[in-house]
Write a protein that binds this DNA or RNA. Structure first.
Lengths: 247, 247
DNA sequence: TAGATTGTTAATCGATTAACAATC
DNA sequence: TAGATTGTTAATCGATTAACAATC
């Protein structure tokens, strides 16, 4: 198999610059599945097996991988470690990414202690908070520093800013991160962050996820009862506390 | 405006059963923007203004809202409180959703203390953990209980299970939740959960988000330097610790 | 009526899926 | 060679977007 692996002679034309967003979003899932397989000592995996481990269809998996290059072997499958490396490289995980966490409340604590950070090429270089009472406290091996140091910390080299402040403080913190040169922000605050077009923001939002689950639970209830309860045409089902919103 | 608001006489035909997934995922964002507007005392908002507050285009906003019904007034805009109520109702937030959190580590703590839970119709009814040392500890006004009580807690009425355990324990916990009758799961553990087709799982994954940011940061670097560094054709840029993976 | 803004249409775009030729 | 599985094609599906008729 080693001898038949395609030589890495791919030209720029052969791999189009743009990997679809939907594919990029799934690469971390494949990476995780491959890591588990590698730990279990599995050397080779078929698209069918890997897809099952990642929770997607095999056609989608093969299509996704085809955007990276031809890293499989027909009739055999994919070499687990080789594919692991190729996806890591594609995601930029073969280099170290320096992260600053702003806001060391419950969530900031959890993030700082999250094991997945260090294991995959992400290094938390500083924890910042506006609360003087927290400053100096040791969290995950780092002393919490003042938000006043944001600019100097970023100047020292930071790639990604994590916003874990209350919503009211988030935009201000984000503005300072961006002004200091940060171009990638992970936002845990429950608000929309306004940034220049060249800054990428990703958002993790607990209540959004819960609300989406609630929507589907509700829909399930309606369907199960054969739409006996017609929320569209019936009187408004008004919950306590929402009465004043109904007309 | 009150008098010109369309009467709620919509028939089943007029609102197709299925609201697109992409739309459902954005409704919580609109809800949040509307809540802020309502707090600021704004009575009416145009699609242009609301879209800006939510960080989307106005055409997309109007298209999304059109799936719920005709809740706006041409030439005027949307009544903030009325639209707030309609979206809340659509998402199922006019009823109370009972949530159990399994795993009271750093993240479980953060989730339990998260204010957004209670404010939007979600009630945490129990915190469960497998660690005896934690049992009885007060977190966010609740005593942590043993994982052994999972089945009895769910039997007492729970709609949504939140998995905040280590990855190794997640599938087992999920199986027990599902066996006990839970059909909506929010998974914070870094693994894929295997569930029956009728169970809905949503996943929140910090390292996935970081990896997506890393991908774009890396791409940015390549683009900025005019592809002087060609990662496709050049020798593999091997980072320490990944050497053994490269061929 | 004139101005403003919605709700809808139709075109475009991107993602998914199944089938299968290529090939190990 | 025969069996297995990839990588790609083409069809389908769903989401986005701009433009504008409807209408307040």
């Amino acid at each position: 198999m080693s001898s038949s692996r395609p030589a890495r002679l791919t030209t720029r034309q052969s791999r189009p610059a743009g990997i679809p967003d939907a594919t990029v979003a799934r690469l971390p899932v494949y990476l995780r599945a491959l890591t588990t397989l590698a730990e279990d000592g599995v050397a080779t995996v078929s698209s069918e097996e890997l897809a099952a481990a990642a929770g997607v269809g095999s056609a989608k998996l093969r299509k996704d991988l085809s955007h990276l290059g031809s890293y499989g072997t027909r009739g055999v499958g994919y070499d687990v470690e080789y594919l692991l490396y190729q996806i890591s490289r594609e995601l930029g995980l073969t280099q170290d990414w320096r992260v600053v966490i702003v806001g060391v409340g419950n969530l900031g604590h959890a993030l700082a202690n999250y094991g997945g950070f260090a294991s995959r090429g992400f290094t938390v270089v500083a924890l910042l908070d506006a609360d003087d009472a927290l400053i100096g406290e040791q969290v995950a091996g780092l002393a919490v520093r003042s938000i006043d140091e944001l600019e100097s910390v970023v100047a020292g080299g930071v790639h990604i800013g994590v916003v874990a402040t209350p919503a009211a403080a988030a935009q201000g913190v984000c503005d300072r991160l961006v002004a200091a040169g940060i171009t990638s922000v992970l936002n845990f605050a429950p608000c929309v962050l306004d940034v220049p077009a060249d800054v990428m923001v990703r958002k993790v939002d607990l209540s959004t996820e819960l609300q989406i689950l609630a929507f589907h639970e509700q829909r399930r209830a309606v369907t199960e009862f054969g739409e006996a309860l017609d929320v569209t045409t019936g009187p408004d089902p008004v919950a306590p506390g929402l009465t004043e919103l109904a007309r």
